[in-house]
């Protein structure tokens, strides 16, 4: 049955066109390096650009040095978060979406940006207003956190404030943080089949406390059937969906809408 499905995927004959035609316009376009592609996207301001550049290449020290200079020149630390750090990260996520750069690049840049944000916050006199907060954690009992690490980096790359509760995070701690932060969404990942039941406990506790919010669950052990049975559960199959889900929530999607948009069957 599955084979039939695969064959149906493309009934018509197809070919590799390279031997029969040349798109000279594509050929003429010189291979653009990630650095060149980024060059066109940086902010013009001479104070902001080096910071954005340092974010792009993942140079943590360069980020802090650039911020230091800009702040001592009288720029507002909170404005620098938006204009220089998130501005630089926008370049990263744009080029990642276009497959000019890859996940490891995003991870480096995300770390550099985070360093920068912490530095700016330490220098700021007022609180910042991020476009939304997301809480991420790894299921209680589970220490496999690569999936969560990627999710956190991609969310930050897209300008969200992420509260990272780390691995093996007790159910109560997750619920407490939701109560305190009132985030847009909560994510939980689990690799071990034995640990994903923690998500059910979290879901029940959130319900008990009237803390309705989309609870995105994913990771090796987790499947859509399990997540669909949780009242707030949304199944996340791949990490890059996380920022897209957050964006959907910002434009008004609830759990049902998210399932409609992201669930497979």
């Amino acid at each position: 049955m599955a084979l039939k499905k695969i064959k149906e995927r493309s009934m018509a004959l197809d070919i590799d066109p390279d031997d029969i035609l040349v798109r000279y316009n594509v050929r003429l376009e010189k291979e653009i390096t990630p650095e060149e592609a980024a060059e066109e996207l940086y902010p013009d301001d001479p104070h902001l650009k080096p910071i954005a550049q340092a974010v792009f290449v993942g140079d943590e020290e360069g980020v802090v040095a650039g911020l230091e200079k800009a702040i001592s020149g009288g720029m507002d630390p909170l404005k620098l978060i938006d204009d220089a750090l998130i501005g630089g990260m926008n370049v990263v996520s744009k080029l990642y979406d276009e497959a000019v750069i890859y996940l490891p690049d995003v991870m480096l840049s995300s770390d550099a940006m985070q360093k920068g944000i912490e530095y700016c916050k330490s220098k700021a006199t007022s609180d910042m207003k991020p476009k939304g907060t997301v809480i991420c954690h790894v299921a209680e009992g589970d220490v496999h956190d690569i999936g969560k690490t990627i999710v956190v980096a991609l969310l930050r790359a897209n300008g969200y404030n992420v509260v990272d509760l780390g691995r093996d995070c007790p159910v109560e701690e997750v619920v407490e943080h939701v109560e305190k932060e009132r985030p847009l969404m909560l994510t939980g990942t689990a690799l071990m089949t034995t640990t994903m039941y923690a998500f059910k406990h979290i879901n029940d506790k959130l319900k008990e406390k009237n803390l309705a919010l989309p609870f995105v669950c994913g990771g090796g052990a987790v499947n859509q059937d399990f997540v669909s049975k949780l009242e707030f559960g949304v199944y996340g199959e791949e990490a890059p969906q996380a920022p897209r889900m957050a964006a959907s929530i910002l434009s008004g999607a609830n759990v049902g809408k998210l399932r409609e948009e992201f669930h497979k069957h």
């Binding site: 790894v138 209680e140 009992g141 589970d142 220490v143 093996d168 007790p170 071990m192 034995t194 640990t195």
Partner: peptide, 11 residues
């Protein structure tokens, strides 16, 4: 063996 995390084990 079922739970690798120390926090859960402790709890």
């Amino acid at each position: 063996l079922a739970y690798a995390g120390d926090k859960k084990k402790e709890k």
